[in-house]
């Protein structure tokens, strides 16, 4: 990320001398820095315009005081029964039109929590609570795990933590091609680098500011060759003209360059929004063609019509099964549990 993209940094006075604060500030020498008491006084303000802010987000450096690691919501999972997630950051440098982060926070500014060590303590505590189980941790729920890595260094930090816990699993979810911390270290067998993918034409229309699908696949192939375990995430599945052809081409293309033994898991899930979130995102981007597709409200969720959803999941599942065993295919379901197939 170029220095010119961030020109305002708010920082909590409490962490002004924290080494990570100093190191991040040093990377933005020309940015205006503004001391604050708590990040919420800027981030949680009412009357913020998310869409305008997203065009020029500020960075907020803060300390996370609680809730460092949380239970993953139902429908999240790649095989374990115990699933947790953590976010060293709120919001994402990318601007994907289907992303729930558009309706999640009042602000589009990026919050980075600098007290990584407190995340470590929580992770350690949870792993010790389940000594006989594989506990899976997901990073990249409230942000992209790697997109700001050259600023935060979080992935490099947390990977070393998980090296100590070979029985646990860490998933770093990303669309980023900033993989220097990964390529410059020995692969960690219990870490999965999970890439979100969709057909290129859909990605061009919906994944604003992200690396192209072609570049992502190129990076996945480099990481796989180096020995990293790869997760492929086709979530959400997007409907549109020729969707079967597009997904078939994508899936076949990916499996052509990524060896099967490198693939830890493949997960996929239909496009879905909680009703209120759909309303908020539609208000932000009413001109967005994504919302002109065959969507309907089913209970508390807005999704493609049931028959479309069924057809898409059936088709993708069958296509995946041509290349990988059922045991590593997972369907994220809107109503509840992930289904190992």
């Amino acid at each position: 990320m170029g220095e010119d993209l961030i020109n305002t940094i708010y920082f909590e006075e409490d962490i002004s001398e924290h080494p990570r604060t100093l190191s991040i500030l040093a990377k933005f020498k020309t940015a205006r820095t503004i001391p604050i008491k708590r990040f919420g006084e800027v981030f949680n303000l009412r009357n913020q315009n998310f869409r305008i802010q997203k065009s020029k987000p500020a960075l907020i450096l803060a300390r996370k005081h609680s809730g460092h690691v949380l239970q993953a919501p139902g429908g999240f999972g790649i095989g374990s029964t115990e699933n947790f997630y953590f976010s060293h950051m709120y919001n994402c440098v990318y601007d994907c039109r289907y992303c729930f982060l558009q309706g999640m926070f009042a602000s589009a500014n990026y919050v980075v929590f600098v007290n990584f060590e407190d995340f470590d303590i929580q992770i350690d505590r949870i792993i010790n609570q389940y000594p006989k189980k594989t506990v899976t941790f997901f990073s990249g729920y409230d942000c992209d795990s790697l997109a700001l890595e050259n600023i935060t260094g979080f992935a490099a930090h947390i990977l070393q933590v998980f090296r100590r816990y070979p029985k646990s699993l860490l998933e770093l979810r990303t669309k980023s091609i900033q993989v220097k911390p990964l390529t410059s270290m020995e692969p960690i067998p219990n870490c999965v680098i999970a890439y979100s993918l969709m057909p290129e034409v859909m990605s061009i229309a919906l994944d604003n500011k992200t690396p192209s699908i072609e570049r992502r696949i190129k990076i996945i192939s480099i990481l796989a060759r180096q020995g990293w375990k790869i997760g492929l995430r086709f979530d959400p599945l997007i409907h549109g003209k020729d969707w079967q052809v597009l997904y078939k081409e994508l899936i076949e293309g990916v499996f052509k360059v990524i060896p099967q033994e490198s693939i830890h898991s493949v997960s996929f899930g239909p496009l879905r929004f909680p009703k209120a979130m759909h309303r908020d995102i539609f208000r932000l981007y009413p001109e967005e063609p994504l919302f002109s597709g065959p969507l309907e409200q089913r209970g508390s969720i807005v999704a493609y019509r049931q028959e479309i959803e069924n057809e898409m999941t059936r088709f993708c599942r069958q296509t995946f099964a041509k290349f990988i065993p059922d045991s590593i295919i997972f369907q994220c379901t809107p109503e509840g549990q992930s289904v190992g197939l």
């Binding site: 057909p199 034409v201 859909m202 061009i204 229309a205 919906l206 997007i238 409907h239 549109g240 003209k241 969707w243 597009l246 063609p289 994504l290 002109s292 597709g293 065959p294 019509r305």
Partner: peptide, 12 residues
């Protein structure tokens, strides 16, 4: 119309 519409992502 919308219910039957398939977005042509190549043209958006």
């Amino acid at each position: 119309d919308l219910d039957e519409y398939e977005v042509d992502w190549g043209k958006t």
